[in-house]
Amino acid sequence: MLATGPHPPPVDTLMLVETPEGIDLPLRPAGLVPRALAFTVDLAIRGVVLLLLALLLHPQGDMGVGALLLAIFLVNGWYMVLFEVLHQGRTPGKQLLGLRVVLDDGTPIGWSASLLRNLLRAADMLPLGYALGITSSLLHPAFKRVGDLAAGTLVVYQDAPPPVLRWPEVAPAPAPFALAASEQRALLELVQRQANLAPARVEELAALLAPALGVPAQQAMARINGIARAWVGPA
């Protein structure tokens, strides 16, 4: 389906990455709000760790203070990098919000990219409290901050594990006409989601197909359930 006419293509947040086999993998870049929250969680974790260390080390005299300074450097400088590289692109904050960092082509992030994107936090913080990073992320189509632009990385939503599907226990019925893949998917979605929709709305949706199915509007949903059952099989 080509978008013709004066309208630009509809607004969407998906980024399609084409594999050599010609398959489009959709990546879902994450925007400002979840990323800001993930950063806040990470900041809080680091703050608590450093506070505990300070309480422990500060009374130990000069050596304790030295060790504390080293710990501050290690925690602030390496927390993000180590988690991102060794934990599939997820810091604890990102994991909580369901985010992960990947390279622009969807491959896992490596040392150089992670170091670069986290070193450039210094630039994103300018002049105050991540003002540059916020501006950049609001303006960029994939919500990248300066560090992401330089390192070629992308913060995306993790794919949720596929839900357990339950199909209605009805007798299978054949579809009376040929259906494209997207149309089959829509019918299966309707069968799956009918429990979450208002009953009147389910009937209304099913009634759209009633003339084509050749049944009264009240029985259309039962018929669609049967068709879905036939597609899914006896399992």
Binding site: D12, T13, R28, A30, G31, V33, P34, G98, F143, Y157
Partner: peptide, 10 residues
Amino acid sequence: WEALDLGCRL
């Protein structure tokens, strides 16, 4: 969250 991002693009 994705709905918020869509708002950004819109």
